[in-house]
Design a protein around this nucleic acid. Structure first.
Lengths: 237, 237
DNA sequence: AATCAACTCCCCATAAATAGCGAGGTTGCG
DNA sequence: CGCAACCTCGCTATTTATGGGGAGTTGATT
């Protein structure tokens, strides 16, 4: 089955600019035999990139109304690892149902399947296919295509990241071990005094770490620094 | 090619406990025809789970010496999205080369290939195969097996997450819209006064939200609350 | 109709974090 | 050997956050 994807994967691999990639992603609609296809990425600094086949009106409406806040696809995928059929999301709640109604009016298919993907430094993306058909057809489709969709989402995201930063490797300044220790202590709720005691250093020294971390992260205060470190995934490992 | 993986994927899918999963992961060594295989996961609260075929001595040494801090595989994969051949990592630096020497002594293969995987709430895992062979053989191996490894890493991680939290869906108490707004403002670095102005409410009201969020999250202070909200994935997009 | 959860506003006293000075020792890399 | 980055410690003044009270309005759900 994945044999039919080979040409698409190859072409995506050869893309050099976001425009190239955009075109290749839109072309995937035929490879996957669906009406709509969306790739949407957000990184920890809030930068977004999207390639999608929905109408401009729907995209505008989505953005201006800030639908991401109520869209069960976004909300659900953000907490999931495995791809999900839209039917299995939580559509209870008035806002969600109304949103779905508007999406239908805008031509979004009644069926959908979304693959969450996560990259370094808190990057998060969704790779979605949507279609108009009955439940049985869609169940059959997702069953046979899930692995292809997982792999494709991987390669698309890989290429998007590569283009975005020019290379595969992030050259981010990282935090020193002690800075990480310090932020980790604060992340578990310790006050400065407790954290310092826990690390067996003076509170003043701890403060120096907080400040250097804050400086490195471009943060305005401790809370901000911790938020940035966490969303950039700097405190693990 | 992925046909040969079908039975393994099925068995992993049926695993119900970490012990089951552990056994299935170790059995993957045959499916992938490698000497060593490692799955290692860390979540944002620091909990770890690992299934690996290395010797106990090497694992002990790795942990007690805190080798994760210098291991180029860990450090490199942490910043990458795409799987990586160990040869393409940064082995300059005395500590890294010494580490590799000890790994060789401990029976770790001279070749290795690692797939980084990320899940919700800052979870990070590595799926690694390692082997003893020459560069040409290994190059051929990785070329034909990369996609299988990506897919397998996905399914293993999916199952590990599912077992860890009992289900696929996080049933967490959520924050109210205003509580989310408030924490989001603080996450971007605003002080209370700034956040309140930005949300067009009084600073006192904002404080009420911070406190109710803190209560809901079981946090000891604002920084802690934000850390918990972020690592629980509550401040979505 | 009642109830509950969320949203909004206010005061006061205390605890904690931030900003601004400065200073010395260690480690690793070129 | 020198530079850079890291780790460690101290003092003072000011700003900001926290803890503990209380109170009225919506809106949705039961």
């Amino acid at each position: 089955m994945s044999g039919t994807l080979e040409p698409s994967i190859e072409r995506i691999h050869r893309a050099e600019t976001l425009e190239d990639l955009n075109g290749e992603i839109l072309a995937l609609r035929e490879a996957f035999e669906v009406e709509h296809l969306v790739y949407h990425s957000v990184n920890s600094t809030g930068e977004q990139y999207a390639a999608l086949t929905y109408s401009d009106e729907w995209v505008d409406q989505y953005l201006t109304e800030d639908y991401a806040r109520i869209d069960p696809v976004v909300q659900g995928c953000y907490r999931r690892f495995h791809p999900v059929d839209w039917k299995n999301l939580n559509w209870s709640g008035k806002a969600a149902r109304e949103f779905m109604g508007r999406a239908q009016d805008a031509g979004v298919g009644n069926q959908g399947f979304s693959v969450p993907i996560r990259g370094p430094s808190g990057q998060f993306a969704l790779f979605t296919v949507s279609h108009q058909c009955n439940d049985d057809e869609w169940a059959k489709y997702t069953e046979t295509r899930t692995r292809d969709l997982i792999l494709m989402s991987h390669f698309v995201n890989q290429k998007a990241l590569e283009i975005e930063r020019g290379t595969d490797i992030t050259s981010l300044q990282s935090l020193s071990p002690r800075e990480k220790d310090t932020l980790t202590m604060l992340a578990v709720g310790y006050s400065r005094a407790q954290a310092a005691e826990s690390l067996s250093i003076s509170e003043h020294t701890l403060r120096v770490y907080i400040e250097s971390a804050r400086f490195k992260l471009g943060a305005m205060n401790t809370t901000h620094a911790l938020a940035r470190a966490l969303s950039m995934g700097l405190l693990v490992v």
